[in-house]
Amino acid sequence: MSTHETDHSLDSFGDSSASATRVTPGNALRPEDIAIAQAKPSEPVAEYALRLGDDALILAQRLSHWISRGPEIEEDIALGNIALDQLGHARSFLSYAAKAWDKDEDDLAYWREEEDFRSLHLVEQPNGDFGVTIMRQLMISIYQHLLYTELLESSDPTIAAICAKAVKEVDYHRDHAISWTLRLGSGTEESAARMRHALEVLWPYVGEMFEDEELHSALGDVAVAPSTLRAAWDEEFAAVLHDAELEVPTVPFAMARGRRGEHSEYLGFILAEMQVLARKHPGATW
């Protein structure tokens, strides 16, 4: 390859120790790299990447609302960084998915309608107080860590490459959520009560994370059937609650169908805020 040629294969970008979302020494895999790489997913693979990307995108939008509102300055920074990590993961997954339809990440983020999103109801739920946000983060970060770890073995090299970097950041997100769950659950009477409340309002949306679809079967070893993660998630989640002096609630699961485009009442408001600038000034650059 001459000095004037560019290698657009995934093998030319980074290694598994690089960050998925931050500037790092060497060639970290970036959404821009994915966009120009030769790999183009089939529509079923793109649909799967949409699910991963939409979860991260909506969670990032929710977490970003904590900036300047955290209980302490360090948490402003921590939650802001977690939001940026999730946004980076979303950009990578959506950049890859978009190629199936000759679009880009912005097309998918800003120009889809509510029913075209495939996010879980859990990530759409309001931030509530700090306890609710931490409990939601505990639930989703344990799930994402298990999922991304399994997807390291995906037969789709782009999905595996994204997860090889994202899983390291999600590991931090999980540790952060565990630390705060232990601190609040076994803290004061007030903090423990708030964590019990958080469990009750969020638990109905846990079941949706582990629902299998025909898409998972059709994709074979490209994807991971969510139901296969349930036992490990239950064990890890219950262990954290035990150490935090909390209990798994008995609240029934809700009929959540975000993967089918049937969303909570909250997603429309999230998208209205997120998409307004792009739609008000189409094609604007700065």
Rank of each mutant, 00 (worst) to 15 (best):
I34W: 11
R62I: 00
H65G: 03
Q38P: 00
H65L: 14
Q38M: 05
G70F: 00
P44Q: 03
R62C: 04
R62L: 02
E75R: 11
L50Y: 03
S68F: 12
S68A: 15
I73S: 06
H65E: 12
R30S: 14
S42P: 01
L59V: 01
A49S: 15
H65Q: 14
D76V: 03
P44V: 03
W66R: 15
L50A: 01
A37G: 06
L63M: 13
G53T: 06
I34C: 02
Y48W: 03
S42E: 07
Q38D: 06
S42H: 02
R30T: 15
W66L: 12
E32L: 05
E32F: 09
P71E: 05
D54H: 15
P44S: 00
G53D: 04
K40R: 15
R51F: 08
L29C: 08
A56C: 10
D76T: 08
P31V: 09
L52T: 09
P31L: 07
P31G: 11
L57H: 15
E75M: 15
P71K: 01
Y48I: 00
V45N: 09
P71G: 01
Q38C: 02
I67S: 15
S42C: 01
E72M: 14
R51D: 00
P41K: 04
V45M: 08
V45P: 12
A35H: 12
E47M: 05
H65D: 07
I73W: 07
A49C: 14
I34Y: 10
D76Q: 06
R69C: 03
S64G: 13
A39R: 13
Q61G: 09
I58T: 08
Q38A: 12
A49Y: 05
E43C: 01
S64Y: 08
S42Y: 00
A35F: 07
L63S: 05
A46N: 05
E43Q: 09
A49E: 07
I34K: 06
I36C: 12
R62W: 02
A35T: 13
K40P: 01
E72K: 08
L50W: 04
A39T: 13
A39Q: 13
D55E: 15
R69I: 00
S64K: 12
S68W: 11
K40Y: 02
E75L: 13
Q61P: 00
L63I: 04
I58A: 06
P71M: 00
Q61A: 10
I36L: 12
R51Y: 07
S68H: 13
I73L: 13
P31K: 07
P44E: 00
A37F: 06
I67A: 14
A60T: 09
I58Q: 02
I58M: 07
A37K: 00
I34R: 06
R30M: 12
S42N: 05
D55Q: 11
A49M: 10
A60D: 11
W66G: 10
I36M: 14
Q38S: 10
Y48S: 03
A60M: 06
I67M: 15
L52V: 05
H65A: 11
A35D: 05
A49Q: 05
L29W: 08
R62V: 00
L50Q: 10
Q61E: 14
A60R: 10
Y48G: 04
I36S: 10
